[in-house]
Simulated assay, not measured.
Amino acid sequence: MSAWSVGSRIAAVRNATDSTVYLYGRGVYAGDFPRPGSGSWSESARAACERAVRDSEKKTSVDDLVSWVKSRLDKEVSAGETTEEEAEAQLAESRQKYEAAKVRPMEDKVRELLEFMDLNPRLDLDGGGTVWGCECWWMPEQEFSTFAGDRLIVEVAEPDRSGV
């Protein structure tokens, strides 16, 4: 989900005013993980995801998906990035994958979507704490000094998650 590589140095900001930046700390982007409290989905969330899956399947057929893959592979063959034989094998594999996905039980598709939606950037701070991407503004560490400018930087404790 993130444009940054796992292990990238980051700065995690709680909030900022014209004169002050409240900083959770510096650390590393650890990757995308289920955020605290994940997995307890309401019936309305499940129903919304099921509608989204059904709508998507209605709008996009296996043939549509395979056609999209074929156009991408045709460009790769033209550019000499892959051979015709490799492209044909990838196309057949894609068709099998899409057909298998189409017949999976709806509950599996809904759960997969909900689990994906629970993923969030985990930011491991140098001081040992963790802040989640949904709890802060975060940026590559090298951009932080430009963001902060001449404002006062105040380090703050990570969010209290005792109620999660």
Rank of each mutant, 00 (worst) to 15 (best):
E76Y: 02
L65G: 01
C49Q: 14
R46T: 02
D64R: 02
V69Q: 06
K75W: 00
W68A: 13
R46Y: 02
K75T: 08
W68I: 07
V77L: 11
R46K: 07
T60V: 15
K70Q: 14
K70Y: 08
S56W: 06
E76A: 14
S56G: 15
A79L: 04
V53C: 10
S71P: 00
S78V: 03
R51C: 02
V66W: 05
K58I: 06
S71F: 00
V66A: 09
A79W: 03
L65V: 02
S78G: 15
R51H: 08
D63Y: 02
E57L: 14
L65F: 01
W68H: 10
A47L: 10
R72K: 09
D55V: 00
S71H: 03
A79E: 14
S71K: 11
S71N: 10
A52N: 07
A79R: 12
S61N: 08
V62G: 07
K75S: 09
D74E: 15
D63C: 00
E76D: 11
D63H: 05
K70A: 10
K58G: 14
S78W: 01
V66R: 03
D63S: 09
K75F: 01
E76T: 09
T60S: 12
E50L: 10
T60N: 13
D63W: 09
R51F: 01
R51A: 11
E57Y: 10
R54D: 02
S56Q: 14
K70M: 12
K59H: 05
V62F: 10
K70W: 04
K59T: 05
L73Y: 06
S56E: 12
E76H: 07
A48T: 08
K58V: 07
S71E: 10
V69P: 00
L65T: 02
V77P: 11
A48I: 03
S67N: 13
V69D: 08
V69N: 05
A79G: 12
E76F: 03
S71D: 11
K70R: 15
S78C: 04
E50K: 05
R54T: 13
V53L: 11
R54L: 14
K75Q: 11
S61A: 12
D63T: 06
S61G: 12
E76M: 13
K58M: 09
V77D: 06
R54A: 10
S67G: 07
A47C: 07
K58N: 13
K59Q: 11
R46F: 04
R54W: 02
L73R: 15
S61Q: 12
S56A: 14
L73P: 02
E50P: 03
D55M: 00
E76Q: 15
K58C: 08
D74V: 13
V53I: 15
D63F: 01
D63N: 08
C49G: 13
R51T: 07
A48S: 15
T60W: 06
S71R: 10
D55N: 04
K58A: 12
A52G: 05
R54F: 01
A52T: 09
L65H: 02
S61F: 05
T60D: 08
A48R: 12
L73M: 15
A79K: 06
K58W: 03
D63I: 01
